[in-house]
Write a protein that binds this DNA or RNA. Structure first.
Length: 593
RNA sequence: GGACCGGUAGCUCAGUUGGAUAGAGCAGCUGCCUUCUAAGCAGCAGGCCAUUGGUUCGAAUCCAAUCCGGUUCACCA
């Protein structure tokens, strides 16, 4: 069934053509929701049309309204014109048709397969430290965008690139070698990723000492940093690693295994999963063949020292290096190689990279280079650039210990969920397993909703001194609304409904059905814009309308059996939509809470 | 310095391709649990949409300039 807004636009288009001889595109017709202080549900804005027709908006509105009513009595129930705005009332019959058609459909809003494939890369952790709040935003966002694409009929591949090599990895390895005396996650009882992260931090602390000592002997800070034993040791370790030194490789494998074990626990908790994991240690070399190709195609050029560059000044950017003078690959080379490999494996139409906005420049360059190399993968590359999560004091910094650890914040959310739940005492009959699951559903729900409800492109602020809310515009609010509905549905049974016996829809009933009808269109918009926050906002506003409806009208003690059945159907569809919307955010909804 | 992003209530955020009196939540203040879950509902209060010009029937939204904040421009990843 066609969406209401679309039907209105098409009707207006036809009337404008037939009655006024004015041809216009459907998308040029502006249809808004009617502001609550006016009568009606949808509003056609007449100014631009009036201007084109050189006619007064008010008389145009009147004529248009009459014709619309005449032409489509199934859709329109009435209209009024105020100061250039044509407010249209949607007929109860149409809304009821929609409700009866969809209330039993748990997949309402989900589109059938469209034969297109998209890859979403997200998470991309470094294997030298545990995940923090910023990673969580990335994970939730990536997972949710993937879910949005699935709901819109795409075949989705979720991928992850593990940044498992490089100087930063060597730092934690060296610190462990020097200071751990053989300690392991098992021997200390510390989660593997945290264990390794501790040595990364230790490296920084010890390096600072060494630098201070060297500065005391008269070196500048830069010289000291360059010449400190730890710096040199880490660099040597990277050389050894690239040379395949067995001892270094063994250490690297062991420590990475610790980190992955830790990540697995966290990923499982937050529900992040991947269809394909790439490892930088396996992908960092192949890009070099493309450097050769680029030189042949004259896309790249070589400097006297042997380094290879691309000149992007004509595109408004700078010159960018793609291979060092010693012949080794840089970050960009790897990413070109990876892009090619992904495409060869999956032939996707679109390749989305969920990466922080610090790397806008990098991805601009990446796409440009791929285009210039005429790689088939180039067209689909899209950088979904999201803003960092900041503290009120600014950026989180590992070295200053201001990083909000992922595991810690999840634990804290669970604890708050537990506290609220126990205070309210509504699920005292739950067994321990059910309780644990509920705390997890609510705590994680609050956290995910908090991170996904704001526009991904924008930076956002997290204040660790104020705990994340469980009231108002939050995950638990939506979950609570769902549980409320489920409570009704446990007590009442959905039976038959005699359509001819209905009494006019009450304002809140109508408002709810109209809101429900918008879900399908919303899912599409959110996907096109790759913006889960639209889904979060929708879920919240739908829940809000339902709660108003809930206190105003009783379902179980409705005025008549038909009213009761009507409301039960509204309840069912609302519960389904809330569950579906939250599902796209990766948030479960409980039956009771 | 070049490029890009942002500045909306005390705080955190919405605000569709320009549309009606700029909206939520939190915090503050009032009310509402003997009937389906009060993690709720109803209400009050809170705004020079950074500033100044411009475009027009109409600007938080578009354009220009300025101010403030951020990111980036490495033979780091």
């Amino acid at each position: 069934m066609k969406e209401i807004v679309q039907r209105i636009k098409e009707s207006v288009q036809v009337i404008l053509d037939q009655k006024y001889g004015y041809k216009t595109e459907v998308n040029d017709i502006l249809v808004n929701e009617t502001k609550p202080e006016f009568r009606g549900n949808y509003t056609v804005v007449l100014f631009s049309i009036g201007k084109m027709l050189k006619s007064n908006p008010d008389s145009l509105g009147k004529g248009l309204g009459e014709s619309l009513l005449e032409a489509d009595r199934d859709l329109f129930a009435g209209f009024n014109v105020i100061k250039g705005f044509l407010n249209l009332e949607i007929s109860d019959g149409l809304l009821l048709d929609f409700l009866h058609g969809q209330f039993q459909n748990p997949e309402y809003g989900v589109k059938p397969p469209n034969g297109r494939r998209v890859m979403v890369e997200y998470s991309s952790p470094n294997t030298n430290k545990p995940l923090h709040l910023g990673h969580l935003r990335n994970n939730f966002l990536g997972w949710s965008v993937a879910a949005l694409y699935k709901a819109n009929g795409y075949d989705v591949i979720k991928s992850c690139i593990a940044n498992d090599r490089g100087i930063h990895i060597c730092k934690s390895m060296l610190a462990w070698k020097l200071y751990a005396h053989g300690a392991t996650p098992e021997s200390t009882g510390i989660k593997g990723d945290h264990f390794v992260g501790d040595y990364y931090v230790l490296f920084g602390a010890e390096l600072k000492k060494q630098v201070a000592d060297l500065v005391a002997t008269g070196l500048t800070k830069e010289q000291a940093e360059k010449n400190a034993p730890l710096t040199k040791g880490a660099q040597q370790m990277l050389v050894d690693w690239e040379a395949g030194d067995p001892e270094t490789i063994a250490l690297w494998k062991m420590m990475n295994a610790w980190v992955y074990a830790g990540f697995d626990v966290t990923y499982r908790r937050i529900g992040s999963d991947f269809d394909k994991i790439y490892y930088e240690s396996e992908t960092y070399l192949p890009g070099k063949d493309l450097v050769e190709e680029g030189l042949r195609k004259n896309v790249f050029y070589q400097k006297d020292d042997g380094s290879v560059w691309i000149d992007l000044r004509e595109d408004g950017l700078d010159e960018k290096i793609v291979q060092r003078s010693d012949g080794t690959a840089v970050y960009m080379t790897q990413d070109i190689g990876l892009a090619v490999r992904k495409y060869e494996e999956y032939h996707m139409d679109q390749s989305i990279y969920v990466v922080a906005d610090e790397q806008n420049y990098h991805f601009k360059v990446l796409k440009l280079i791929c285009q210039k190399l005429r790689l088939p993968s180039a067209a689909g590359i899209f950088h979904l650039s999201y803003g960092l999560v900041e503290l009120p004091s600014g950026r989180m910094k590992t070295r200053e210990g201001t990083v909000v650890d992922a595991d810690d914040i999840i634990d804290e959310m669970n604890k708050i969920a537990e506290q609220h739940t126990n205070e309210l005492g509504k699920v005292d009959d739950f067994n321990p397993e059910e309780r644990t699951e509920l705390y997890d559903t609510i705590g994680l729900g609050a956290l995910k909703f908090f991170l996904l409800r704001v526009d991904p492109r924008k930076r956002m602020v997290f204040n660790p001194d104020e705990s994340i809310d469980f009231h108002g515009f939050t995950g638990p609010f939506v979950q609570y609304t769902h549980a409320r509905i489920k409570s009704i549905l446990r007590k009442e049974t959905v039976g038959s409904y005699s359509a001819n016996a209905y009494s006019a829809l009450l304002p809140l009933e109508k408002e709810l059905i109209i809101a429900l009808e918008k879900y399908a269109a919303l899912l599409q918009t959110a996907c096109i814009e790759m913006n889960p926050s639209l889904v979060a906002n929708y879920a919240f506003s739908l829940a809000k309308i339902f709660n108003s409806f809930y206190v105003e009208h009783s379902v179980g003690r409705a005025e008549s059996e038909d009213k009761k059945q009507l409301r039960l159907r509204i309840c069912l569809l609302t519960a389904n939509s809330l569950k579906s919307a939250m599902g796209i955010l990766g948030i479960r909804v409980p039956e009771r809470m």
